[in-house]
Design a binder for these strands. Structure first.
Length: 274
DNA sequence: CACGAGACCTGTTCGC
DNA sequence: TGCGAACAGGTCTCGT
């Protein structure tokens, strides 16, 4: 589910608080419960529960699609994958179905990792880089300029869509924002990365930042029963718009499957060079 | 190295 | 109405 803008929105809400709950910074973890064992990637659920007890929440931030929660000498990483979300509830509430890991906090608060599809994972690590070092650069990293991006694209021979989804190449893009960025840049999802000119690479990078920035401003996208909060879904240009007119030229949007992912594009604005 | 398929999971929507 | 198929914001692993 959540891509960079959704994870950033969630991290911001947990850190700053909202109308529903106070900021979680400084909250003490009184106890943790693991309701689905495989949701804890590391360490064992028993050790996870034992080490978390009495910890205090430091900063809460985002790296790629990971939520990063600093504790004292330990870091809690959470990846929401397809259907994960984080809820802040009262400890007096019954535990909702599909809750996988619960953290009971001071002030009668409970942080719940809710994940119907069970794909999400949490890690408790002394060194978060054990997991995070595999990630590519952040899309907004100022060191990632057009020249650097162009060279990274050019030294690989990969289709643009699967490449942009590869978190080792760039951290944070998922299916929605990749389709939107490729449409913005006028590039076909099957185009080979080594064929991009410097100008095309520069445009693609600018478009990635534009669509992610719009997603962050709108607090992400909310689709179906998963994740509520943002409203970017009302502004999609191609994603889930198969057969509807391209907002730029009016040609019906097409849907193909690339790397087993639904892929939406405008055949007029995003031609595939021979 | 690059790509495709299968696995991991549950819930919703679509087509007959 | 019922029921199976298709689909869903992600990632890993294996085979070619």
């Amino acid at each position: 589910m959540p891509e960079l803008p959704e994870v950033e929105s969630i991290a911001n809400r947990l850190r700053m608080g909202s109308e529903q709950h106070p900021p979680l910074i400084g909250e003490r973890i009184l106890s943790a419960q693991v309701l689905w064992q495989r949701s804890v990637a590391h360490p064992s659920p028993e050790t996870f529960i034992q080490k978390l007890k009495g910890q205090t929440i430091g900063d809460i931030r985002r790296r790629g699609k990971f939520l990063v929660i600093d504790l004292a000498g330990l870091t809690l990483l959470i990846h929401l994958r397809m259907s994960g979300d984080l809820w802040v509830e009262s400890v007096s509430q019954p535990i909702a179905p599909h809750s996988r890991v619960c953290f009971d906090l001071s002030q009668n608060l409970r942080l719940t990792f809710h994940d119907p599809r069970k794909f999400g994972r949490v890690w408790l690590l002394e060194d978060p880089n054990e997991v995070l070092r595999e990630l590519g650069p952040e899309p907004f990293d100022p060191l990632l300029n057009a020249e650097v991006f162009s060279q990274r694209l050019r030294k690989l021979h990969r289709q643009l869509k699967p490449l942009l989804l590869d978190q080792r190449f760039l951290a944070g893009l998922g299916n929605i924002y990749t389709d939107e960025a490729l449409h913005c840049a006028g590039l076909h999802p099957l185009m080979s990365s080594n064929q991009l000119s410097l100008a095309q690479a520069a445009r693609l990078l600018a478009c990635i930042r534009e669509v992610l920035g719009e997603g962050i401003r709108r607090n992400g996208a909310s689709i179906d029963w998963v994740y509520r909060g943002g409203d970017l879904q009302n502004y999609f240009r191609v994603y889930q718009r198969t057969g509807l007119p391209c907002p730029r030229c009016g040609t019906p949007i097409e849907r193909i499957t690339v790397g087993q992912r639904g892929t939406h594009f405008c055949p007029e604005c995003q031609p595939l060079a021979p």
